[in-house]
Design a protein around this nucleic acid. Structure first.
Length: 813
RNA sequence: GCCGAGGUGGCGGAAUUGGCAGACGCGAGGGACUUAAAAUCCCUUGGACCUAAAGUCCAUGCGGGUUCGAGCCCCGCCCUCGGCACCA
């Protein structure tokens, strides 16, 4: 052998050459059809880990494949740079979030480059760059102008010891992760985006090539339910409100309401609670403030509640209904009030039993004769004890009662959504400032566009026990009202980082554009994204927000499309120590060591081989050596001299068949992101080539065709190895500018197949036949086989099933 | 708890979507080469019965069902992973 495969030697060399030649620079005016292949950009956590490579390497392979197929592929990369961990690092280690973030970007960019990706680095974006977040702020103003931003009270996790707002992640078992004191819910005025306005449209995915499971999750996230809103009367002289409104999917059961439940945080609770119940109610409210929503909604835990001593009126039957509070009712969902129908709802049944509330039947089960129920009846039945609706099938009753309520002015048909508006306020420093000013005279005043960006002050102090550092920064907070010029205060909350990631894919079209978030020409050229790949964990957050954002921009006339991502593919999760890899879980494994050990190409190929890309898997470096061995064999194969030894047509044809069959398989697999089986096919091919090379029975031209094809098929997966061998074979630079090989269907076709012969569904024999064997012939062949005959002893053939090119099943009794 | 996905040899996985279960790779065992090791190459490798060959039976988380035929479809369980609105 003339040389050895040495990844350390060739990988750096080619990376430098590609960079020097701008091989992956993408131009807007390129005449080839455009293809925007986007991979979710990473959060700047500090280290790129194997999970990132699992997301990015196969995506890079697909992008390279599309390049070879003749597309002008935009495959950009950037950094999601704002967020909580930077601020935590600042508090913990006294390093400024900006410094921390920029160091991390430096490191991660270096790590990304070792992967050998085809990113166009000239388009890199960074969301904490003022050139970027100035437009994040601008979009806030646009959403505000469009009436999609509003302020409302919303609860936050509050640690009274640290005097700070905690993220859900920072609350561990109801305690602050830092000081372990109990966390309470506290209401703050915060900014929301009216995502619910788009609820119906967000449930639809017309024209999108998305995985069914993600579409399902998004639809369930919106959680649209049809039903009715009903009003229950309040007659309390000191209380302004005259009704409690509830949403129900079961208006047909409204005559069976025997209690009303309010969320503990419901504003009416304070007003309605009678003195004798006050102590108990307050204790319960306090307790509920310490629970998470998941705890409150769990069906496992027993439902508890407290009677507040007040009643409301069921207008349908004129009965007085006691009012309770219970933690399973959430203020943010529906109207924050729920009617209790114990006879026909499992949860209400248990609640009524516990508190001795009557359980009148209003939907009679078939054959019911007036006895008490042992459990809630939630199936269809006939309406009883329901006034004029008696005798009606309950399914019809749903509409009938709703229409009746509408006529009487006590409700009507209604639709409810599980989806809540998007809360974007964060009481933190490291985020894009919300560009709003509070003026004592003019109220809420947006920062004029010409004054953007509202810059984060560099000299903020990160007090370990403070609120948002911006709140204490006098120079930041104090400003003048843009309207009246009087002294005013700035908003000190910053934006949710999902706001930054809702538009970064627009920015990649023209990342250095100064006069707007994008250059309209570039945007029109590149958007929408043709292929978006990333983790399925983003199904209902980032992907959902981005769709909302795009639709909102469309309605403002800023863009002319309503969906950002045409095709979506979600890779699975790489598991380490039984969990998703992430810095906060402390189980990250970085690729650096592996890269310096066995080379990036080996790691890329190995990650693609661990299983179907959408399934993820457990990280285990055991199999890496197999890929070093394989790539070494490929190296030797391409490097070896081929000597013909009495070549003949049959062997030549066989070799060409293998070549074209492999091209076909690899092409189909890579199109479907079935990288693992593509690599299995390439391994089989190279194993075959090893034998063919040794035998020398095929013509040299066929062998050369095979080796060239192998390198071209490998080019996306192992870009450095393919480039090196391509050049060693004397081909022109670069392999990455070559067209993807085409297969000849005639050569790829299988001529012979193994016909499986079964008796009563059990395999009894197999025989090699022409792939196009006709049914009569296959049937005759099967019945004539000795092994088949042996199993037919004493039986008569009832039926013979023939699957063309596959099997014959003899059914005998 | 709710929503979504998954469970196949010692391990990762394959199976053209109802038609040969275990491709390909790892690991393991045996052998060749070598003074030896590494590297490389060759053979074997789901289980049981059988001296072997041949063959038969069992086997895709568990229990049922549909079908000529089920890893794949249906019903009921169990377990694992992701998300659940302030990690991103």
């Amino acid at each position: 052998m003339a040389s050895r495969y040495n990844p350390q030697e060739i990988e750096g060399k080619w990376q430098e050459r590609w960079a020097a030649d701008d091989l992956y620079r993408v131009r807007d005016d390129d005449p080839r059809p455009k293809y925007y292949a986007l991979t979710m950009y990473p959060y700047t956590s500090g280290d790129l880990h194997i999970g990132h490579w699992y997301a990015m390497a196969p995506a890079d392979v697909h992008a390279r494949f599309m390049r070879m197929r003749g597309y002008n592929v935009l495959h950009p990369m950037g950094f999601d740079a704002f967020g909580l961990p930077a601020e935590n690092a600042a508090i913990k280690r006294g390093i400024h979030p900006h410094t921390w973030t920029m160091q991390n970007i430096e490191n991660m960019r270096r790590q990304l480059k070792t992967m050998g990706p085809c990113y166009d680095w000239s388009r890199e974006v960074n969301t904490c760059d003022p050139d970027y977040y100035r437009w994040t702020e601008w979009f806030f103003l646009k959403l505000y102008e469009a009436g999609l931003a509003y302020r409302a009270k919303a609860p936050v996790n509050w640690c009274s010891t640290c005097q700070t707002v905690l993220a859900n992640e920072q609350v561990v078992g109801g305690l602050c992760e830092r000081c372990e004191s109990p966390v309470v819910r506290r209401d703050l005025e915060q900014w929301f985006f009216r995502i619910t306005k788009y609820a119906d449209e967000l449930m639809e995915h017309h024209g999108l090539d998305w995985p069914e499971r993600i579409k399902t999750m998004q639809r369930n996230w919106v959680g649209k339910s049809q039903g009715a809103e009903l009003s229950f009367g309040l007659e309390h002289p000191d209380v302004e409100e005259k009704e409690i409104r509830v949403f129900t999917t079961r208006p047909d059961t409204a005559f069976g309401v025997t209690f009303m439940v309010l969320a503990p945080e419901h504003p009416l609770v304070e007003k309605l609670t009678v003195p004798s119940q006050r102590a108990e109610v307050e204790a319960y409210v306090e307790q509920a403030r310490h629970q998470t929503e998941i705890e409150r909604l769990s069906v496992e835990t027993e439902k508890t509640g407290v009677f507040i001593g007040a009643h409301c009126l069921n207008h349908l039957n004129g009965e007085k209904v006691p009012i309770y509070i219970a933690d399973y009712v959430l203020l943010g969902y529906g109207t924050g009030a729920v009617m209790g129908v114990p006879a026909h709802n499992t949860r209400d049944f248990a609640f009524a039993r516990k508190y001795g509330i009557p359980i009148p039947v209003v939907i009679a089960p078939p054959g019911w004769s007036g006895e008490e129920l042992e459990e809630a009846w939630t199936e269809p039945g006939t309406m009883v004890n329901s006034g004029e609706f008696n005798g009606l099938p309950n399914e019809e009753g749903k509409d009938a009662v709703a229409e009746y309520a509408s006529r009487k002015g006590i409700g009507g048909k209604a639709v409810s959504y599980r989806l809540r508006d998007w809360l974007i306020s964060r009481q933190r420093y490291w985020g894009a400032p919300i560009p709003m000013i509070y003026c004592p005279a003019c109220g809420i005043v947006p920062v004029p566009e010409k004054d953007l960006p509202v810059l984060l002050p560099a000299d903020a102090e990160f007090r370990p026990t403070g609120e948002s550092p911006l709140k204490y920064h006098e120079a930041f907070v104090n400003t003048t009202c843009p309207k009246c010029g009087a002294p005013a205060r700035r908003e000190t909350d910053t934006m949710d980082t999902f706001m930054c990631s809702s538009w970064y894919y627009f920015r990649f079209a023209s990342p250095r554009h100064q006069d707007g978030p994008w250059d309209p020409k570039a945007l029109a050229h590149w958007l929408p994204v043709d292929l978006y790949t990333g983790g399925a964990e983003h199904a209902v957050m980032h992907l959902f927000y981005s769709r909302f954002f795009t639709k909102a921009l469309r309605d403002m006339g800023l863009i002319d499309f309503g969906e950002p991502f045409i095709k979506l593919f979600n890779q699975g999760v790489i598991i380490a120590e039984r969990q998703k890899m992430s810095k906060s879980r402390g189980n990250v494994i970085t690729p650096d060591e592996y890269v310096s050990d066995v080379g990036a190409d080996v790691v890329r190929a190995f990650l693609m081989f661990v299983g179907p890309w959408d399934q993820g898997g457990e990280w285990n470096d055991k199999g890496l050596s197999g890929f070093s061995r394989w790539l070494n064999r490929v190296w030797n194969l391409a490097d070896a001299e081929y000597r013909e030894v009495e070549p003949d047509a049959a062997n030549t044809r066989d070799l060409r068949h293998m070549t074209h069959r492999t091209i076909k398989k690899a092409t189909e697999d890579i199109e479907r992101f079935h990288f693992n089986t593509m690599l299995a096919a390439l391994m089989e091919f190279s194993n075959y080539l090893g034998k063919a090379q040794e035998a020398g029975r095929a013509e040299a031209s066929a062998y050369r065709e095979a080796i060239d094809s192998l390198l071209l098929l490998l080019a996306p997966t192992t870009p450095h190895l393919a480039e090196e061998l391509w050049s060693r074979l004397g081909h022109p630079y670069s392999v990455h500018n070559q067209p993807w090989p085409q297969y000849d269907p005639e050569l790829a076709r299988e001529e012979e197949v193994t016909l499986v012969i079964q008796v009563n569904g059990k395999l009894r024999d197999r025989v090699s036949v022409s792939a196009s064997i006709p049914e009569a012939e296959a049937r005759e062949l099967a019945l004539s086989r000795e092994r088949v005959q042996a199993h037919l002893q004493g039986k008569t053939v009832a039926q013979v099933i023939f699957v063309p090119g596959r099997l014959v099943n003899v059914v005998a009794r």
